[in-house]
């Protein structure tokens, strides 16, 4: 199937081709092609063509797909340390976040996936998530009371919304647009590019930038493929990944700016709340998390001190 001397690695992810992270992945493909003189090629399957995040992770473990990009939240099913990255208001700001991720803490978390055949290569910026609502504006945490907010089906997201006073409603992402439109839920939470690309801004009047969590994306390679690479190839892959991560941060910022513009022009009211009120309310999430995962407290302390 392959020309002699070239290897093709299949990379699958679930994002549309207009997404900034996809652009980052294109950069990864390009850098790797250049570094390896065309001997290491990446074939990209975007748009969830090969399955959902969790399904493709399994395909990496099975060994039929080589590389994927998932949310760190999805990875926490394997490596509990990834859970920590989703704790609300853990990072002071983006700079703090990427200092941690690109430093020894972040790297050690990437390594930990190897035990599950999922070796982390780099992080991608996925911004921070905020609430959007169809009819009731959220200006303080009190406004969340009684609102049904769609969350991803994971415990931390559910706990967080409930702790802030809302009523967390896990629901498939694909059903969400109609659910908001028809009032099955009162709102949801996501980062600006997803808010716009999902068209949810069409059915939402308010976007409250409380920025409660900043879960990054992770680029992963199946160790079944990683171990087949030569030492030189491994270096190329790692370097290309890191370069793409740098480039992606810029793509992300551009996309946030553009998304906010689209949402504003569509008449969505952007609310900039007092973040500390939300942070205060969500403290119990951290406390509960530490109670359930005492072995991760030291990691949390390290991150806070970083």
């Amino acid at each position: 199937k392959e020309e002699s001397g070239t290897k093709t690695l299949y990379l699958a992810h679930t994002l549309p081709q207009t997404h900034p992270v996809h652009k980052g992945i294109l950069k990864f493909q390009e850098s790797l092609d250049k570094k390896s003189n065309g001997t290491l090629k990446i074939k990209i399957f975007p748009d969830g063509q090969l399955g959902s995040e969790r399904e493709v992770l399994e395909l990496l473990q099975i060994g039929s797909v080589a590389i994927t990009k998932v949310s760190a939240a999805t990875m926490s099913n394997f490596v509990p340390e990834y859970h920590v990255l989703g704790i609300p208001y853990l990072f002071r700001d983006k700079e703090h976040q990427f200092d941690v991720l690109e430093g020894p803490i972040g790297k050690s978390i990437l390594e930990k996936g190897s035990k599950f055949y999922l070796r982390g290569l780099c992080y991608y910026d996925a911004g921070s998530r905020s609430f959007y609502t169809s009819n009731k504006a959220i200006r303080t945490p009190d406004d969340l009371k009684g609102l049904k907010i769609r969350v991803m089906n994971n415990q931390m997201a559910i706990n967080m919304v409930n702790a802030m006073g809302g009523s967390a409603t896990p629901m498939a992402y694909g059903e969400l647009y109609t659910a908001i439109q028809q009032g099955v839920v009162d709102g949801a939470e996501n980062n600006p590019p997803s808010f716009v690309s999902s068209n949810h801004f069409e059915v939402s009047k308010y976007y409250t930038l409380d920025q409660h969590s900043a879960v990054p994306d992770v680029l992963l390679i199946s160790t079944k493929y990683w171990e087949k690479l030569t030492d030189q190839e491994k270096i190329w892959v790692q370097e290309a990944a890191e370069e793409s991560s740098e480039a992606e941060k810029k793509y992300w910022n551009d996309s946030v700016e553009e998304s906010m513009k689209i949402a504003t022009e569509a008449g969505v009211e952007i609310i900039i709340p007092e973040k500390s009120l939300f942070a205060e309310k969500s403290k119990s999430v951290l406390e509960e998390f530490e109670k359930e995962n005492p072995d991760l407290s030291s990691l949390i302390e390290q991150i806070k001190k970083n």
């Binding site: 399955g51 395909l59 099975i62 060994g63 039929s64 498939a172 059903e175």
Partner: peptide, 22 residues
């Protein structure tokens, strides 16, 4: 693709193919 990953992938696609609330 190799046989064990191949048949395992088909098994996985069959199961996840119906893993849907809709």
């Amino acid at each position: 693709i190799d046989s064990l990953p191949g048949i395992t992938t088909i098994a996985q696609r069959m199961i996840t193919g119906i893993d849907s609330f809709a």
